[in-house]
């Protein structure tokens, strides 16, 4: 099992995410300070920490939604820095994110929501339909495929968000509290789905409060953010 901190050059070479001296401030408030880490390809990372510790901020930096105050982040072949911004449409084909509040369009049907990133990528209609059908089957959304998202339950919405995120087969999947709104049974189901994709080579980083979910995944890496710094818990 690969470990993360940058001391080992072998591990750094295998890393899909590399963080170098990352600082982030909101005004004068310090959120992240001097983060250095390397996340190996194909790993499943749990990111924990108290509310407001900076988990979501860290994920947003990795997703290039926020520019760091200082330092550099390399995600796959893209470099994110205070003044470095990757070409978003190319970057997001590689990195997708699942949000706690789903960020799906209520007036779109399940199929239409899943189709959005595929349309953005310019995939043909025939191939889009094929992919959507597979995802609907895997995530058990076939029955509600034409239902507007506003009528879906929390679990269904979360699965739609997951389906949308993995529809483009991203190399990295970031999930911000993906089970936050769900009951234990549904949370387990979601984690199994994520674990399934992880086994197929997707690097997954999950920010969560429910560390018991760790047991559902093989060889997870557990990172925690406290006092603006990041540590690995073994």
């Amino acid at each position: 099992m690969a470990r993360l901190f940058k001391n080992n050059s072998m591990e750094a070479a295998n890393a899909i995410i590399e963080v170098n001296n990352l600082y982030h401030y909101f005004g004068k408030k310090k959120i992240l300070e001097k983060l250095n880490l390397a996340i190996p390809k194909g790993s499943f990372v749990f990111l924990t920490g108290s509310t407001g510790s900076g988990k979501s901020t860290f994920l947003k930096i990795l997703h290039a939604e926020l520019a760091p105050t200082a330092g550099l982040v390399r995600v796959e072949n893209f470099v994110i820095g205070p003044k470095n911004k990757p070409k978003i449409h190319l970057f997001r084909r590689c990195v997708q994110m699942i949000y706690q509040d789903f960020e799906i369009l209520d007036d779109y049907s399940v199929k239409q929501n899943i189709e959005i990133p595929l349309r953005c990528m310019g995939i043909s209609k025939k191939n889009r339909q094929k992919r959507i059908e597979v995802l609907l089957k895997v995530l058990e959304l076939e029955e509600v495929k034409d239902t507007p998202s506003i009528f879906l339950s929390g679990g269904e919405k979360q699965r739609v968000a997951i389906a949308r995120a993995i529809s483009t087969s991203p190399k990295i999947l970031l999930a911000d509290e993906p089970t936050g709104n769900l009951d234990k049974r549904m949370a387990k189901r979601i984690m199994k789905i994520l674990s399934h994709f992880n086994k197929h080579g997707t690097t997954i980083i999950v920010a969560t409060h429910s560390i018991e979910l760790k047991s559902l995944v093989e060889n997870p890496i557990h990172l925690t953010i406290s006092d603006s710094t990041i540590q690995e818990i073994k």
Partner: peptide
Amino acid sequence: AKELYILKLVGASNTF
């Protein structure tokens, strides 16, 4: 606005 925001989030190019 929300639709455009989400389009950007999932990787829509400016041209799109």
